[in-house]
């Protein structure tokens, strides 16, 4: 019973995985790219740290680890909508998605989940290993830090997927299959901590960065990993993630129902 209920979602997950894994070159290319980017960022940060003796909210060693974690887990960022749905919107076949006898939100969520995890999985582990061995990335601060980091990473995946689904749904308001996503992704990128570590932003910006959901994708898990956020405060990170996951999933489901109603009225 449960199996037959879950089957369509697991099937789409597995199909997606297989498709993405076929692109061997993409995996290798992404790997090399991430290392290159990481190296550039690390060197730039080194140069900045050379310029001053004043104490900073984060030491260089932590910043280096932060950058490499970011490179390894780059794929988790909700930086683009589900490309398959984009194709469907462009060709006008997205209406067929409504015909499927499944909960569309759950279906799209499963697909986006694979879309986020599969490419990341391919490159994150070897990249993290290389960075740990050769590029100055530090291991987790403690076994406890590792555990809370893993928990927070799971939260980050769900948070990112919820955002991806929302980006995907917004496509249905456009003809070309592009749109809000183009504007949102650079914002997410900087607010999640991918441009520079969030603690290095001016102090007046910190409050807003703490409240917004995006730090839950990169910044907060990374800082748990390196002990920059103490274990005793780990629960605040997880709670912050949980609240935002609930809010974003609810918002996504509501948005999708609006989008599909609109599609039905317009006749696709």
């Amino acid at each position: 019973m449960i199996q037959s209920f879950v089957l369509p979602y697991t099937a789409v997950l597995s199909a997606r995985f297989r498709m993405i894994l076929q692109y061997r070159a993409a995996a290798i290319a992404g790997f090399v790219t991430q290392i290159g980017w990481g190296a550039i960022r690390v060197m730039a940060m080194e140069a900045f740290y050379r310029s001053t003796n004043a104490p900073q909210p984060m030491n260089l060693e932590d910043v280096v680890t932060y950058v490499w974690l970011g490179q390894a887990l780059l794929g988790l960022l909700p930086w683009n909508p589900d490309t398959e749905v984009r194709t469907m919107v462009r060709s006008g076949t997205v209406a067929y998605e409504l015909v499927r006898p499944v909960n569309l939100y759950a279906y799209w969520f499963s697909r986006s989940l694979a879309f986020r995890i599969a490419p990341t999985l391919m490159r994150s582990i070897p990249l993290a290993l290389l960075a740990l061995l050769f590029f100055g990335m530090q291991p987790p601060a403690s076994p406890e830090a590792l555990v809370v980091w893993l928990a927070a990473t799971l939260g980050a995946v769900l948070l990112s997927t919820a955002l991806t689904v929302i980006l995907t749904i917004t496509l249905m308001w456009t003809i070309s299959g592009e749109g809000v996503a183009l504007l949102v992704s650079p914002v997410i990128y900087i607010l999640a901590g991918m441009v520079i570590p969030l603690p290095l932003f001016p102090d007046w910006a910190q409050f807003a960065l703490e409240i917004l959901p995006f730090r839950g994708i990169c910044d907060a898990p990374f800082r748990l990993y390196m002990g920059h956020i103490p274990i005793t405060e780990a629960w605040t990170v997880l709670l912050h993630q949980l609240i935002w996951i609930i809010v974003l999933v609810a918002f996504g489901a509501w948005l999708l129902s609006k989008a599909t109603r609109r599609l039905v009225i317009q006749g696709g």
Partner: peptide
């Protein structure tokens, strides 16, 4: 050649 299944896809990444 493409191998079938999830495991095959993994293998395909390494050796073709």
């Amino acid at each position: 050649q493409r191998r079938s299944g999830l495991w095959g896809a993994f293998q395909g990444v390494l050796r073709r």
